[in-house]
Design a protein around this nucleic acid. Sequence first.
DNA 1: ATAGTTCTTGAACTACAGGTCAAAAATCAG
DNA 2: CTGATTTTTGACCTGTAGTTCAAGAACTAT
Lengths: 194, 194
Amino acid sequence: MNPVGRPKNFEPDVVIAQAMETFWTKGYADTSPADLAEATGVGKGSLYHCFGSKRELFGKVLDLYNKVGAEVTEQVLSEPGTAKERIRALLVLLVDMDLDGPVRRGCLAQNAVAEIGGHDEAAKRAVLRMEQRMVELFAARLEQGQRDGDVDRALNARAQGLYLETTLAGLRTMAMTFDRKALYQIIDTALAGL
Amino acid sequence: MNPVGRPKNFEPDVVIAQAMETFWTKGYADTSPADLAEATGVGKGSLYHCFGSKRELFGKVLDLYNKVGAEVTEQVLSEPGTAKERIRALLVLLVDMDLDGPVRRGCLAQNAVAEIGGHDEAAKRAVLRMEQRMVELFAARLEQGQRDGDVDRALNARAQGLYLETTLAGLRTMAMTFDRKALYQIIDTALAGL
DNA sequence: ATAGTTCTTGAACTACAGGTCAAAAATCAG
DNA sequence: CTGATTTTTGACCTGTAGTTCAAGAACTAT
């Protein structure tokens, strides 16, 4: 049942994850095929053989980023606590992750849309899908809170979800330049209405 | 008192403004010296003679962007109305400007920090200064509102200013992918607490 | 007019990005 | 083993980014 022919000596999924780190840290334009080869340990030729082009590999990277992001979000939001507590925990976690790394690199999806969104409709659609997903996850957690009784029933969960995703995007932009104290204060202010 | 030597046949400030449009639309990496020469009508050699390098010209562009942004903000915030009304007007204006152009290009400063912030400390500092300026302008307008009696005296103007700048950053990110209706709804939600 | 200065023009250069390809290597079917 | 298939390797290629430079043009001062 094995595929015929010489076997790959790498796992595409691992390579995509390594490429994600490189694109995330250096940006799309500033990541060369040579960089990717070095970061993954796979020859340039093999990368092209497997993924077709730099842009296609980046597409796979965005898919992975979307998947991981959604998983982390679902995980954190579903832990015990009120909606407000869990949403705060998510925002704090992401801010901490942004600041704890050796270099501020923000959100890969936002960086992608900023860098290539202007001339790459597919990239824009991919990022839109991620954002919509996040809106839904926020909204769903708020509705859960309404059922649990820790969120006002009068609140428009959908609108609040959209707002929270905006806040998250803003936070990650601010996390490129501001310090932790300011970012925590922003979280407090943004969640004051919940 | 005229400068000695052959006169320039272009205005550096105009060239900077034209370069701003190009960088804004295409992004930093994707804008070549040839693009800049075409956009400005000035020869590549002259551009280098005058500005030194692509990166230095971009530095001037960021300075101009900062100046224009601050001027527009001060203008809009100082028109008649309550603090909430004026801040809403500013957010609406910026969203409209983002959406009315032929191509979604977001905020030049955010794009810059997303694209080159990771390996360009000077760019990061320039964007931080702009953001801090905006925080101050928001805070000052809120304090004005407190004196006018249309903003709660208990409100922490500094924290709210930081929050509003974050909201603005998030909005402009969302303006890359979402439609006008969603963005207006976000503004409503974000300002509900004022 | 000449000298000194500053700007323009366009060719030239180096380096590397992004991608292709031919040949060899590693597997499987028969 | 042979042949078919798939992958690896690394050399190679084309185009362009970013920059420099030499020559000449346009000005001021004397």
